[in-house]
């Protein structure tokens, strides 16, 4: 088991990525602390994990409240006595688009997406150090490596990159690694809401798939398996960096205008180039 004897705290634990990650961490032997605001959803997930042979504890936590963080950590100490993995998934994607951003919305976005993670790291790092070190995983977004229409969201995710890398610097000597996962479009509870958002109708899934190299949206389990790599000692030499899990969305975006790509592939096929290539090494 890849996380045997580890304790992991996951914020936003009952969302799509959270559920998948918590279940996978538990399956790999970790004691999982599920943190979130919603008592019923959190307890249901904890119950499910405990009944299937894993170890889970739900702690009620509003990540923007430092006092609640401390209370949560006390519970972790009491129940498991240690902490090795902190996965910060929680985040909001409320639209905040120039030039009409309300300052209150902007501040709220930064409070949830950046400040809460600072507080989480500050609260958890000492216990992680005392537990012999570990790994912090922050969930960003491809909006944090590109220019995205949602100004406040994009800005907050770029800022999270700075926070992560700076934390990697300062916590390295505590034996704590810090990295980000930059997910592309993943099927989760949050993106289900986006799909009903009028702005996102422009990139509705049918059109969207053709702008991704792998021609599909990602699955929450694919974020979980990446998080598992970063959480485990398999990534013992990985810190201060990101893993982009986007199916090849951002890298080829300038050349993935749907029609043009299809046109190019059609051209190649018409010329027989693909067949020539495939047959090149079959002879002889």
């Amino acid at each position: 088991m890849r996380l045997a004897n580890k304790v992991a705290l996951v914020t936003g634990a009952y969302g799509g990525m959270g559920r998948a990650s918590a279940r996978l961490f538990a399956k790999e032997g970790a004691c999982v602390v599920l943190a979130g605001r919603k008592l019923e959803r959190g307890n249901a997930l904890a119950k499910e994990i405990n009944e299937s042979g894993g170890k889970a504890l739900f702690v009620q936590l509003d990540v923007t409240d430092p006092k609640q963080w401390e209370a949560a950590l006390e519970q972790v100490k009491e129940k498991f006595g240690a902490l090795h993995i902190l996965m910060n998934i929680v985040g909001t994607n409320a639209p905040g688009i120039l030039p009409g951003i309300e300052l209150a919305d902007w501040n709220k976005m930064f409070e949830t997406n950046v400040t809460s993670i600072l507080v989480g790291i500050q609260t958890c790092a000492p216990l992680m150090k005392a537990s012999g070190g570990g790994s912090i995983i922050n969930i960003g977004s491809v909006a944090g490596i590109t220019g995205n229409f949602s100004t406040a969201y994009s800005s907050s995710k770029w800022a999270l990159e700075g926070l992560s890398r700076s934390a990697a610097y300062v916590l390295a000597d505590y034996g704590i690694r810090v990295n980000m996962i930059q997910p592309g479009f993943i099927e989760t509870d949050m993106t289900a809401q986006i799909a009903s958002n009028p702005i996102f109708k422009l990139i509705s899934k049918g059109t969207f798939n053709n702008t991704v190299l792998l021609r599909r949206v990602g699955k929450a389990g694919e974020i979980a398996s990446t998080a598992l790599f970063l959480a485990s000692d398999e990534s013992s030499y990985v810190t201060g960096t990101d893993i982009v899990v986007d199916g090849g969305w951002v890298t080829s975006a300038p050349y993935l205008i749907n029609e043009r790509r299809n046109h190019m592939l059609t051209l190649l096929k018409r010329k027989g180039a693909v067949e020539k290539f495939l047959n090149r090494f079959k002879k002889g």
Binding site: L213, L214, Y237, V238, T241, G247, G248, T251
Partner: peptide
């Protein structure tokens, strides 16, 4: 485990 990762880098430094 990396089934949704393509066209990218992983820095291990």
């Amino acid at each position: 485990d990396s089934s949704y990762i393509t066209g990218n880098d992983l820095v291990v430094d």
